[in-house]
Design a protein around this nucleic acid. Structure first.
Length: 232
DNA sequence: GCGACAG
DNA sequence: ATCTTGTCGC
């Protein structure tokens, strides 16, 4: 397994105003009219980040799975200093430097990337999954655990049931998707070069046993381990 | 003006 | 995200 130091990277915005301007500038680069790779083929990579704010340390993990078997093929972690505070709507600036470093440290192509949080389901339609997609050119989708500010009707009880995640203007920005019968749904949205229907299909393919995708479960575990190792 | 608000 | 024990259930 590869572990890298987060390189002194692409300058992080110094203010909220600058961050908003960056989102404005990059939003037009998002590709929304590609369906993306079909589920169960090629590779799927989960990315996640853990923090120790008291010590100002951040750790990211990228875990590559075989999309057909969900068996791990490769993994990498990156550790460094926290570069941006958590601000709702600006999560990407906090997570992306670490995530990019972990992705670059992988020994193979990531294929489709699955991240925690949102893509188009975002106040300015440019969440983490969109941002990461534009910066890497990779197909990316987002799976979040909460509906954020968006509204939805509870999906029917069976696994696979879904209901639209709606913005104020009525636009469907994502979907509440039931990955386990009778269990709280997850909130799926397209990021870059992946359609919403396909994003949901991928999410179901990645949840044969648990509510959250295997990609995020594995990446979550790995980045916590990396953080503990870096902190001790 | 105040609260809510992905991780 | 993170702080945290036991507990109910398959």
């Amino acid at each position: 397994m590869t572990t890298v130091r987060i390189p002194a990277g692409p300058p992080v915005p110094a203010t909220v105003e600058e961050a908003l301007a960056v989102q404005d500038a990059l939003r037009g680069e998002v590709i929304l009219d590609e369906p993306g790779p079909p589920p169960g083929t090629g590779r799927v990579t989960g990315v996640d980040v853990a923090y120790d704010d008291a010590r100002d340390v951040v750790a990211a993990a990228a875990v590559v799975l075989d999309a057909a078997t969900l068996e791990p093929l490769a993994e990498a972690t990156a550790v460094g200093e926290v570069a941006f505070p958590y601000v709702p709507g600006l999560l990407a600036f906090r997570e992306i430097p670490a995530v990019l470093a972990a992705l670059r440290a992988l020994p193979c192509d990531p294929g489709l990337v699955v991240c925690d949080g949102y893509g188009r389901a975002h106040p300015r339609r440019f969440g983490l999954a969109c941002h990461l997609g534009v910066l890497t050119g990779l197909p990316v989708l987002g799976v979040a655990k909460n509906p954020f500010t968006f509204t939805h009707e509870p999906p029917a009880a069976p696994r696979g049931s879904a209901s639209p995640l709606l913005a104020e203007d009525g636009e469907e920005v994502g979907r509440a998707l039931r990955t386990r019968a009778g269990v709280k749904p997850v909130f799926v949205s397209a990021g870059h070069r992946v359609g919403l229907d396909n994003a949901c299909a991928h999410t179901l393919a990645l949840t044969p046993r648990y509510r959250l995708p295997e990609t995020t479960r594995r990446a979550d575990r790995l980045c916590r381990e990396a953080l503990a190792a870096a902190t001790s």
